[in-house]
Structures are given as structure tokens and as C-alpha cells.
Design a protein around this nucleic acid. Structure first.
Lengths: 115, 115
DNA sequence: CCGTATCCTCTACGATACTG
DNA sequence: CAGTATCGTAGAGGATACGG
């Protein structure tokens, strides 16, 4: 147990600048599974609009966590994947994912109360 | 190395519901250090307004990660601390903190470019 | 000292239509 | 298929003044 060592410095703000927001965690998670085409992602990330999907992908690309490969074919074909940097982020995210999963019932209950 | 195991299930959305937003990570970090009084927190978390501080604290309290102790004295004295649940969250957050710290320069540079 | 109460801005996000 | 363009909204966050 690491116990009472503080969250020294707290790079959380920096990290949240990269994976914060409503969609990025989900997109990252999908890409952590495997390389995906645009339309494939759109179907996998339920409820996202094309505008938001492309916007999030562009931002993640600019942040160096996502790689975009355009095959320049007709009809168009583009594949998205995680960079090594992106993979390292996904790994850093895993404990938080697991914490969220472990306590999702409790969290949802509280959110429902608070409205 | 856990390597290519996916971010199974992705409780990230649940976790971000609890520590997402501009201020909660910083407040959590300060409370992970030690118990704090309201005014103390206000000074430690630079730039936060009283409204936002109390709002974030109330939400974190409702989520069960922060405990509020009112000493019912005059002048008023209230102390905030992390619950066990809050401590477990802080621990889950540590790798992400460290990732952010390790790459803060790169991230800030990208944010600056993107504007 | 520890908050409440208003009012205001800004931007993340959404809906819809269109294009190479 | 893989985007772009435009318009609209809700809520997160900010500034300031007041209250027990």
C-alpha cells in the first residue's frame, strides 16, 4: 500500500485537458481495443454526432494520443488508432476505470439523488 | 506488464462524474494532503470563488468522497476531509496524476498551439 | 468565518443540412 | 464513406453583493 503519500504536484489538470469531456474517454477506450474506421467508431460510440466524433478525434490527434491513417481510396477509408503516447495514457487510466466500474452503482445512485 | 488488456467496461464515465470538472481534482488533491478548513481551502485552491468551492465541496460530500465537520462554534469553524471512499479514489487517480506530471510540458505545448 | 443569492458570460455539446 | 458548415441550447463557471 502506497498509503498516505500525497498526489504530489497533481498533473491531473493536464491529464484531464487531454481526456476530459463527455466523449474522449469512451473514444479512447474503443481505440484501446483496436484500430477503427470512422464509421465504425460512430456506431460503437452510441449517441455521438459526426461533428463531435471528428472534433474529439482531431483534438486527440493534435494531442498526439491518436494516429489517423488516410488510405486515399474511393470510397474514402480512414483508420484511427492509439499512438504509443495514447497507449501510455490508457494504461494510466486503467485504475480509475476500475475504480469507476467497482463503484458505478453507488455513483449512479448519488447522481440520481442529486439530479 | 498488463499490456494489451482492454479498458474493460470503462467506468471512466462514472469516475469522471465524480472528479470531472475544473476544480474537483485540485480540491481532492488538497484534501488528500490533510484535513482543511473552508477558508484554508479557499486560499490553497488559487482562483476559485467561494461559490464554486462550496458547490464542489457539497457535490463531493453528496458523492461520499468528502466529509464535512461543523464544530458549531462562533466564529464558525468547519473542517473538510476525505472519507475512506475518497481516499480510494485518490489512490486510483495517482497514476493519471503521475502521467500528467510526466507529460505536462508536452501537453501544455499542444494546448497552446491549438489555442 | 462560512457561507447564500443574483446575474452574466462562454463554451461544450447537440440537431440538421450539405459535400467530395 | 468520411467528413464540413451553420445554427441553437443548457449548464458550467465567474463576479459581485449580502447574510448568520
Amino acid at each position: 500500500m502506497a498509503r498516505s503519500r500525497p498526489l504530489s504536484g497533481c498533473g491531473l489538470e493536464a491529464a484531464l485537458a487531454v481526456v476530459g469531456g463527455k466523449w474522449k474517454p469512451i473514444v479512447l477506450w474503443r481505440l484501446a481495443g483496436s484500430t477503427r474506421r470512422f464509421g465504425e467508431l460512430r456506431r460503437l460510440v452510441e449517441g455521438i454526432s459526426e461533428k463531435m466524433l471528428i472534433q474529439q478525434l482531431r483534438e486527440m490527434e493534435a494531442d498526439g494520443i491518436v494516429a489517423r491513417k488516410d488510405f486515399r481510396e474511393i470510397p474514402p477509408r480512414v483508420e484511427y488508432s492509439l499512438t504509443e503516447f495514447g497507449v501510455s495514457l490508457a494504461e494510466a487510466l486503467r485504475p480509475l476505470c476500475e475504480w469507476g466500474q467497482a463503484h458505478v452503482a453507488r455513483i449512479r445512485a448519488n447522481q440520481a439523488d442529486a439530479g
